[in-house]
């Protein structure tokens, strides 16, 4: 097969699914009400993209996700390193982490609303809580796995306590931190959309819900697909970033 055609061949299955969607909807196998034809959804999508009132919702969702994840990254790394480095911190906070870990974090959505209302704060706090432990435990495992000889080398080259933590423990844990961050990124989208679907007055989840309540199904499908596209793009971008950060692994 010609190499120029290879990408087309690879993505043919997705194209087939799209055609199937369009076909069964147009042929009336299922009602166009339950499954609007793909072309209608794409048309609705386009009109959303050119509608200036659509973008504030996108930015609201993105901002909440980014803020929650960023805070979780900073706090999670500090927590994970402390748990691995200090026996006192481990004894004090280890049990809390272990108890909190199996809690499905979506259970916290109503609580964050009671604490912070239905605006940005409750979503950011929820995402922070949901991402904190995946990042902290990954960091903890990464630091615990750092080669002892690297720590000894650095110490004999004159590194003090903080240098050891920053230059060796943290740097050595970066691959694990990135793995935890990828899990956290997926969790960010789940919690973001869930909480916006449940109760919100802004954001893509809110839009999906409003279009659904208003029976504007092509628009609803288009918003769902926007969220999926954003999740997919974020993951791809993250994988590129991780590959670049870990280029030393050879």
């Amino acid at each position: 097969m010609a190499s120029a055609l290879r990408p087309v061949w690879l993505y043919t299955p997705l194209l087939l699914l799209a055609l199937l969607w369009e076909g069964i909807s147009r042929a009336g196998v299922v009602s166009a009400y339950a499954l609007p034809p793909l072309t209608n959804v794409l048309a609705a999508w386009w009109s959303l993209l050119v509608d200036p009132s659509f973008w504030p919702h996108v930015f609201a969702s993105l901002g909440r996700g980014a803020a929650g994840l960023a805070i979780a990254l900073v706090v999670g790394v500090v927590l994970g390193v402390s748990l691995a480095w200090s026996r006192a911190v481990n004894m004090l906070l280890g049990p809390v982490v272990q108890m909190f870990y199996p809690l499905p974090k979506s259970a916290l959505i109503p609580l964050t609303i009671i604490w912070f209302g239905i605006g940005d704060e409750s979503k950011i706090f929820l995402i922070f809580l949901g991402c904190l432990l995946p990042i902290a435990t990954a960091t903890y495992n990464g630091v615990r796995g750092v080669d002892r000889n690297l720590l000894w080398s650095a110490a004999s080259l004159g590194a003090g306590r903080w240098s050891l933590i920053r230059d060796v423990a943290f740097m050595g844990a970066v691959p694990d931190i990135l793995a935890g961050l990828r899990t956290a990124l997926a969790m960010t989208f789940v919690l973001l959309v869930s909480s916006e679907l449940l109760i919100s007055n802004e954001g893509l989840g809110f839009l999906i819900r409003s279009y659904g309540d208003g029976s504007q199904y092509p628009q609803m499908f288009a918003c769902s697909m926007t969220v999926m596209a954003m999740g997919f793009a974020a993951d791809q971008a993250f994988r590129r970033l991780a590959a670049w950060l870990l280029r030393w692994r050879g």
Partner: peptide
């Protein structure tokens, strides 16, 4: 990698 939860309203429909 896509957030499947965004499908929920579609499943409700």
């Amino acid at each position: 990698p896509t957030p499947k939860i965004a499908f929920l309203p579609i499943f409700m429909l």
